[in-house]
Amino acid sequence: MAGETTGGQVAGGTPGGRAGQLKSSGLRHGWTTGACATAATTAAYTALLTGEFPDPVTITLPKGQQPAFALAAELLADGRAMAGVVKDAGDDPDVTHGALIRSTVRLGPPGSGVVFRAGPGVGTVTKAGLPIPVGEPAINPVPRQLMRDHIAEVAGRHGGAGDVVVEISVDHGEEIARSTWNPRLGILGGLSILGTTGIVVPYSCSAWIDSIRRGVDVARAAGRTHVAGCTGSTSEKVAVAVHGLPEDALLDMGDFAGAVLKYVKRHPVDRLTIAGGFAKLSKLAAGHLDLHSARSQVDKGYLASLARQGGASVELTAAVAAANTALEAIQLCSAAGVPLGDLVAAGARATALDVLRGAPVAVDVICIDRAGAIVGRA
């Protein structure tokens, strides 16, 4: 899953809502759905009070940047104003890149303040454990506050009371949300409006990590005492088959083993299963907490040393060290009756326990091959 990120150094806003340039990486940063919703809301409320849409519309982000956003849609009629902004995620592979985020604003009763509604394509929270109460639109706290601040600013400038109903919608949002964690987290009907800084930092992976944390929160709130961090859909199926876990106990860990372990350390459950491919879990066994191929590699020398500990001959140990892939290494060992898979699982469990550092969490590890067959357990 790709998604919004929530931090990082940026060069500052650029006109027209176009993504800016990251100072250090040369990649373009982008804007979160929360920033886009705030820009659309600011423009819509301004038009409701003045009859004119500011285009581009400038907002102030939590860290002081002031990007300007071009409007892609405008409507002023029947006591309401609608403005739309196309999200630009910069160079991040964000599933919401290019989505049209709309805000429709109408006046509310005196003293009502700002009331948020979920329009088409924005989800509604149906499970406890998220930062928004059950029944509320899936608009996170920081974007809510950002919109409130800008509504108050527009009201002060143009003589409004600031009592409004704000409906956020995302074109095709329900379809896009199927590519996110939202259905599993109990956010139904569409996307979440996210962001803590307003800025998407390419490949910072914080959105995925945030989803892992929310997954743990939802599982705990549902009373789950056993969760599974899985590297992919095949390992999820294996974890379900072995342990009979419900969907809301499954964490889409991907490559972020460290994120799961560090969060579970602070928010313990009785039991954590780590399930994944043999090659990825061999990296965890070797002490790597980020299992992505760009940031850690399978250490076949380490596999060879494990094989030797498991009774491999000198010749087999050398063959494992020279193996082309981790798959070849475990096939060689399996054929010789050397339990390399179990040894890798034990090593991965040892790394996990080291990260958990005495937290009251029981850990088991399941290693699988590409076909989903279990090749090691600890």
Rank of each mutant, 00 (worst) to 15 (best):
P110C: 03
V314C: 10
A221Q: 03
V154F: 14
N140I: 11
T38K: 00
G160T: 14
G51A: 09
A221E: 01
L303P: 01
G119Q: 12
P120L: 15
H292R: 07
L22F: 08
G7N: 02
V85Y: 14
E167D: 11
G108S: 11
A259D: 00
G64M: 00
L291G: 05
A285V: 02
H226G: 01
A373T: 11
H267C: 04
T60G: 04
T351V: 05
R271K: 13
I132G: 03
T46K: 01
S169P: 11
G277F: 05
F116D: 00
R148N: 08
A373Y: 08
C205G: 06
R357K: 06
V338F: 07
L146P: 00
L71Q: 07
T60A: 13
F69S: 00
T5F: 00
T124Q: 12
G3M: 06
V154S: 13
L281P: 06
A221P: 01
L332S: 03
K265E: 02
L261H: 02
G287F: 08
D270M: 01
A346F: 10
G277Y: 04
S179N: 10
A40C: 11
E328A: 07
P202S: 05
P202C: 03
G347A: 08
K280M: 14
R295N: 09
C36N: 02
G51C: 09
A177L: 12
P246M: 06
G223S: 07
S313C: 13
P141Y: 09
A161F: 14
A319Y: 15
R18T: 13
S293I: 13
A249S: 07
H150P: 05
G51L: 05
P54I: 15
A19F: 13
E236Y: 00
R308E: 06
R377Q: 15
A241T: 07
I187R: 01
I168D: 07
T126Y: 08
R357F: 03
K265H: 09
L100I: 05
Q66A: 12
V242P: 04
R184T: 08
S179A: 15
L340N: 03
G16T: 13
V201Y: 08
